[in-house]
Amino acid sequence: MAAFSPFDIVDIQARPNRLVAQALSCLLFLICIGLYMQTSINRHKENPEDRVTPNATQLANGIHASVFEPAEEDDYIPADDASKWERFKHSMIVKDTVSSGRRFLISLALLIPAVVLALHIGLFPWFGAGFLRFVLFFDKIVALSLLPILFIVFGIDEWSKIALIVIGVAPTMILDVTQMVKAVPQEQIVKAFTLDANNFDVAYRVVFRQVLPQVINSLRLNLKPMMLFLFAGEMIAASDGLAYRIAIMRRHMGMDVILPYVLWVAFLLFAIDLSLRLLNRRMHPWFQA
């Protein structure tokens, strides 16, 4: 390898070798961790009980509490000889993940009809005439500001949170998918008709199959907005869930629990994103994203 010259940074054709590339990709992580540790150490020097930036011991305790201890509002008291697995099953992070995860998955499932609707809007002129303008308008509504109305319609239990996610994300998805459907060359559709396809063959077997990988990619981009809406909903009114716990912990600066929770949510999102990506590659090897 040629020696490194500073101009390589602005050279499109200069590639760092593998080792350097790996090291560079870790660099910002290390800087962040370093900055955090320095802040934490400084703050602990001033106040050994600081909670804003918990140190390693505090974090370890926080993680232990979230992974092996039941939520404070639960009645469950582990037996003295309860195994780690037993404790883990009743821990607060499992409880919160299950309830948040259920809301998330139900909303995800409710996006399927939205995608089908989008296919129809993009393909069938009558649907387009009826829905497109309304969805365009609805997409610009800030769902969070309609909460009092959502409360009337959906109550304050599960459905208002799910509705918040779906109302927040579905219009954007619909518009996005409609665009993809419209981008399918008209010639293909004409050709399919000449080969004796009926309307639904064209919709579901020609167009839908083609846009599906793009739809999945669009969904991947929308995971974060979905999680944001879920968090907003859980912080407004809830009695369990990941964001509920964070809201409660904030009341006494329980950053030792909040930080692990935030990282856990990040990991979950990453895992969902990765599995969707792998699924996409498996299902549509022909698709180049």
């Binding site: 909460l147 409360f151 009337i152 407004i236 009114a237």
Partner: peptide, 24 residues
Amino acid sequence: LSKLKLINTSDSDIVAAFMNNKSN
């Protein structure tokens, strides 16, 4: 005390949430 079912509700929305839900 332990049988109370508490719903953590943000103070900015608590009035609407209570008034609009006869079930709470």
